[in-house]
Amino acid sequence: MKRTLFWLQCGGCGGDTWSMFNIESPNLPELFKSLDIEILWHPTISVKNRADQSQLLEDVLSGRQQLDFLCIEGAIIRGPRGTGLYDLANGKPKKDLVAALTRQAQYVIAVGTCASFGGFGADGEIEATGMQFLKWDKGGFVGESFQSKSGLPVINLPGCPCHYDIIGGTLSQLVSDAPLDLTEHQSPMEWYNIMVHQGCTRNEYHEYRVEDKGFGEKGCMFFHLGCHGPLAHGPCNKLLWHRRSSKTRVGVPCFGCTRPDFPQPYPFFETRNIEGIPLELPEGINRAHYMAYKGMAAAAAPRRLKTRKTGI
């Protein structure tokens, strides 16, 4: 059965689209072909003149044209003062177009952190919000009780950018009509029920608390450099980028870009700590136990780690 997709870019950088172009096996054209998805509109891909564009919009909004997947990339910009004038489409606030399209779609997919949770500008003058969340709070642009025609709430695919495999994987899953299990933040379990930390090649250093204090060292970046690997859900270190590497593997701390509070207000590249122990501990951990465990682990650290005589 043929499905249709409409992709709208709002307050974003286009990074999720460009990440999506990195889909492999199958590559992007193959993916849409094998899933039998017709792209009604994608701002980067479509070739449609003005008249055809307005006709298409009219058809979708009146329901004459069926709409299966509505993908929103970028935050919904509501500023200044709720008017939405900071982001215009055809001279009108783009947020109104989003609202109208949302009512027609079988599935609404928020691609990237901005569309999911507000991301950049969620605290700022542009009054940005995510589709169904504003940071940690449910509600967002469409409201807490929103369900698309399929009965599902907005499906959030956070990440800055969203990993391309997640975009392809989610569409494949929905086309197959298999149920899609979602986390409490409405993201597919398959990719968001795992910590970024899982699979990092610095895990051994983390285990024995061999710490990275400056850039370009071998060691774990959790204790000093602000790594959010154990604090953020996402498959970076499982899927890898270009099946090759990840930020934490090369020595860039994870900034927790899949989290509802990204970009966090506190400094990047620094771990907020209490007496040398990170303020935020890996999810679900007891502080006293953790301190005892890390103390013993550090004492047990093997020499080859302490002298950093290993590959990363």
């Binding site: 990074g15 460009w18 990440s19 990195n22 800055c160 950018p161 970076c236 980028w241 270009h242 590497s245 990840s246 930020k247 934490t248 593997r249 090369v250 020595g251 860039v252 900034f255 870009c257 990047f268």
Partner: peptide, 8 residues
């Protein structure tokens, strides 16, 4: 580590 949006 990744493209886009790394900070290496």
């Amino acid at each position: 580590g990744q493209w886009p949006h790394s900070s290496f």
